[in-house]
């Protein structure tokens, strides 16, 4: 009894015993006079689905790019599975990145390569991780099957619809069996039905591979279905945090603005 209470207290104080997969502390980033992030904080725990919501242009993509070292922040501490990004050399960073799947906002499939070559691309450097020597076929097939697109193996990206591209991109992000998946607006630019399919797929993958996910979105439906915890990014800081139910009942005008239909 006493112990359970203590655990709950610890959890509320943020000294959680769950493993921290990603941590951002006090992140600052500006482009000239455009101050995008002004001290943003975030923690992603193991096995969790964390949704970050923010308006268009609020710096969500900038934040997620700083996380994987695609952009250098002006100031702040970023660590992935206990390793501080800033201090890593290229080799170590590459190894660390193989544990992170990244789904880009526009899918970012290589348009000069077939679907198969797209999926094989991450394997070029990280064969030892997944234990493939010569034939990458079965691995590619499995990844494509898990997104339900095995038949597209030899097509070019331009022959796919937007929704299919997103799935192939998801398969590509999954092929190295990452521990963390970062989704940058997984449902943007898709019709509601296809968006729902993608969300279902994300949940399925989460269960199957036991990943921790950071999902960036401004789609309220997506957030409601998938989030266990949410952060609202407003004015470059984490303006509000909590579960979907907590946030939707909030009386703060800036928070309400997100959920107004």
């Amino acid at each position: 009894m006493m112990k359970a209470q203590k655990d709950k207290l610890l959890q509320e104080q943020g000294t959680d015993t769950r493993k921290v997969m990603l941590e951002i502390k006090d992140l600052y980033k500006s482009f000239g006079d455009n101050h995008v992030l002004n001290g943003f904080n975030l923690k992603l725990y193991q096995g969790e689905n964390l949704v970050v919501m923010g308006k268009s242009g609020s710096g969500k993509s900038v934040m997620i790019k700083c996380l994987v070292g695609l952009m250098q922040p002006d100031r702040g501490f970023i660590s992935v599975m206990g390793q501080e990004i800033k201090t890593l050399d290229r080799e170590t960073l590459d190894v660390l990145r193989s544990d992170i799947g990244f789904l880009f906002q526009g899918s970012a499939l290589y348009d000069s390569m077939t679907v198969r070559e797209n999926l094989e691309f991450p394997l070029r450097r990280h064969t030892e991780k997944v234990g493939v020597v010569a034939d990458t076929g079965p691995l590619v097939l499995e990844a494509l099957e898990s997104v339900g697109l095995a038949q597209t193996m030899n097509l070019m990206p331009e022959e796919l619809s937007g929704g299919m591209k997103r799935r192939v991109a998801l398969a590509r992000a999954l092929i190295l069996r990452p521990k963390i998946i970062l989704y940058d607006e997984p449902t943007s630019g898709l019709d509601p039905i296809t968006a729902k399919e993608i969300i279902e797929l994300m949940r399925h993958i989460q269960k199957k591979y036991d990943t921790s996910s950071l999902i960036i979105t401004h789609d309220v439906d997506c957030a409601r279905v998938i989030s266990e915890r949410m952060i609202l990014l407003v004015d470059g800081i984490n303006y509000a945090e909590g579960s979907y139910e907590e946030l939707i009942t909030s009386k703060d005008p800036k928070v309400e603005a997100f959920f107004k239909k």
């Binding site: 526009g106 348009d111 000069s112 070029r124 450097r125 990280h126």
Partner: peptide
């Protein structure tokens, strides 16, 4: 044009995160 469109559609970023320089 080719590299430009790869930059704009984040294909270059995608390469970077998948371990190829």
């Amino acid at each position: 044009a080719e590299l430009g469109s790869m930059r704009v559609t984040e294909q270059i970023d995608a390469m970077e995160v998948s371990g190829t320089n």
